[in-house]
């Protein structure tokens, strides 16, 4: 197979295992490209991509923009904070106005779950979901699973624990879908208040004790507490959260095996991860960032090639 089954990347739920494997194979080739003296290829030179961000983003936006530029695409950026959205324009009108300028692809982040799905029913350009509320963040899951694949060779039968704020995390949902499609076993771990009520319906194990989760897993993907999405108190204090769910070097050393630590960033050092873990050999956090660029290049390249 040399082509994706979908025209858009709205979520991991919508794509197949074969799609993910094709993205991985292509990303491996792009990883070689971004390590060359000249890191640019001319593949998307006749394509214009709009990065439409209705929600704040630093690394995802940077990563997408760099991926687009490495592929020689023309890039335009839009963020809602200084746009006509503030003047009352609807999402569809905003995007249609951008598309009227002959844009071929839209990379979109929005605070409402399903916003890119809604858009995909009304426009012909390819859409890449760069995060829709608490729903999905497919490219993050792809780069996470690609990083695991790179380290372990395969995800089949591998045990992955996702630890932290599962309730507000689109990274967790997309990761669960991606990991399961690739044959990994998934556990979620966090305080009861930060676990979605029906999360077991996705076929994942649930663990409240972080130490037990670490003992079980081969890979721990540690998530940030998303205070900006928490409108009520889910736990008494950050200090208490850190005491019960923060991961430090001693905890890792007490295990009878060496597990791999991942984090999608930004890290709150001293809350979910201590510096002695985040900066250790076991952490592949900066590999994830490098792989993010290669995976996003692969996604944009492959979507552009869908007839």
């Amino acid at each position: 197979m040399s082509q994706l089954s979908q025209k858009h990347l709205l979520g991991i739920k919508d794509i197949t295992r074969e799609d993910i494997e094709l993205i991985f194979e292509t990303a491996e080739n792009f990883k070689e490209v971004i390590n060359r003296p000249i890191k640019k290829v001319p593949s998307l030179r006749d394509i214009t991509i709009a990065n439409v961000f209705f929600e704040n983003s630093t690394r995802t936006k940077l990563s997408f923009e760099l991926a687009e530029k490495r592929l020689s695409a023309d890039v335009i950026n839009f963020s809602s904070s200084n746009s006509s959205v503030k003047k009352g324009e609807t999402l569809l009108d905003t995007v249609n106005n951008i598309l009227a300028m002959k844009v071929d692809m839209v990379v979109m982040r929005h605070s409402s779950p399903g916003a890119p799905h809604f858009l995909s029913r009304h426009i012909t350009a390819n859409i890449v979901n760069a995060g829709d509320g608490t729903h999905e963040h497919p490219t993050q899951a792809l780069l996470d699973t690609f990083s695991i694949h790179e380290k372990f060779g395969s995800l089949e039968g591998l045990k992955v624990a996702i630890i932290g704020d599962i309730l507000h995390s689109r990274v967790a949902i997309s990761n669960i879908f991606a990991l399961q499609k690739l044959g990994a076993k998934v556990m979620v771990c966090g305080p009861n208040t930060l676990l979605p009520k029906f999360i077991t319906a996705l076929g994942v194990k649930v663990e409240l004790d972080v130490m037990k989760a670490l003992q079980w897993c081969d890979v721990a993907n540690v998530l940030r507490i998303q205070l900006e999405r928490q409108h009520i108190k889910y736990f008494p204090t950050l200090r208490e959260y850190s005491l019960y769910y923060g991961i430090n070097k001693q905890m890792l050393q007490s295990l009878d095996k060496e597990i791999t630590i991942m984090h999608p960033g930004p890290i709150n050092r001293g809350v979910e991860l201590n510096s002695d873990v985040a900066d250790s050999e076991q952490a592949i956090i900066l590999d994830q960032v490098e792989n993010g660029l290669a995976v996003r290049m692969a996604v944009l390249y492959l979507l552009a090639g869908v007839n």
Binding site: N29, E32, P42, S43, D46, L302, A304, N307
Partner: peptide, 26 residues
Amino acid sequence: DTTFYRDDFRRRDSPVKANATKVPFI
């Protein structure tokens, strides 16, 4: 591998699959 440099990308019925480039010298 020349896949990313082809001039028929998006003009073929099905895209060409990329292969590994290994040039460990300048």
